[in-house]
């Protein structure tokens, strides 16, 4: 059956990674393809955990602040664009949407010069602030479409009850959009988690590094500790795995219902 073969081929590299993460160096050399006895799980994983712990905490810290700032700014803007009319609306919306056409790679170098001038190098903010700014256009576009589709009656009812504009935002619009917010948050966290180049050039200080940069250097320090190396790779995958177990349903529904189609 073709599907079984596809699943095996797709997952095999990670299975190999998991099996090798339990071996000592000599076990790896002598039983390359199969699990070896006794397993060196504790030894390898403790070594890997000590190396990756700091990076993981940094990434979680940056990820959480990014997502909070990202969702706050994009939902506010999308809410205004979706439910109100005001002078300059079209121009402002257009000037935001045009960013979708400008690739991030264009600004890599000037952005680096700019954060250096702002003295943000080697701080968490050098990641968080640009991460909040990136992807605004896309998220506002998706959220505006969603907020526009909410029935006007809900907002009218809230207003009769005396709610002001900001109150209808957080009492009506936000609670109804949990699914789409979860999808956008997962996508954003995944991008933060996976970014290599920006943290590579802006964080010289090892204690501030995110997991992706940490692993990039990690392989240099441990020449023959393949077990610990693969254990570190596996540990780095756990947080996103947990996030997906929680948000998988939302995410699959979000992707399939058009959050990604844009």
């Amino acid at each position: 059956m073709v599907l079984v073969l596809l699943v095996i081929l797709t997952l095999y590299p990670f299975v190999f990674m998991a099996i090798t993460s339990t071996k000592s160096y000599s076990q790896f050399l002598h039983s390359y393809w199969i699990p070896a006895w006794p397993p060196h799980i504790v030894e390898n994983y403790v070594a890997a955990w000590n190396q990756t712990r700091g990076y993981l905490l940094n990434t979680i810290y940056v990820g959480v602040l990014t997502v909070v700032g990202f969702l706050f700014t994009t939902t506010l803007a999308a809410f205004v664009f979706a439910r109100f009319r005001f002078p300059g609306k079209e121009i402002l919306f257009g000037s935001l949407m045009i960013l979708m056409m400008i690739p991030q790679i264009l600004q890599l170098i000037p952005a680096f010069m700019w954060v250096r001038k702002l003295q943000l190098l080697n701080t968490y903010w050098v990641l968080i602030l640009p991460y909040i700014a990136g992807g605004q256009a896309y998220a506002v576009f998706i959220l505006r479409t969603f907020f526009s589709s909410l029935p006007q009656g809900l907002f009218d009812a809230a207003r009769i009850d005396g709610a002001r504009d900001f109150q209808t935002y957080y009492m009506v619009a936000l609670p109804l959009s949990k699914g789409i917010l979860a999808t956008l948050a997962i996508l954003r966290v995944q991008q933060v988690w996976n970014d290599l180049i920006w943290p590579l050039i802006t964080l010289a200080d090892d204690s501030k590094r995110t997991i992706t940069v940490g692993l990039y250097y990690f392989q240099g320090e441990t020449q023959t500790q393949y077990g610990a190396m693969f254990a570190g790779y596996l540990i780095a995958s756990v947080p996103l795995f947990l996030l997906f177990l929680v948000g998988m349903k939302q995410f699959m529904a979000g992707v399939t219902s058009g959050a990604i189609k844009a």
């Binding site: 506010l76 205004v80 109100f84 005001f86 400008i102 264009l106 000037p110 952005a111 504009d165």
Partner: peptide, 25 residues
Amino acid sequence: HLYLFLLPTFAFILIFRYYPAGSAV
């Protein structure tokens, strides 16, 4: 007050998107 709601988004993209992109060109 609506412009106030838009301010965060536009502050972010002006500082971290428009300015660097223009600077690159």
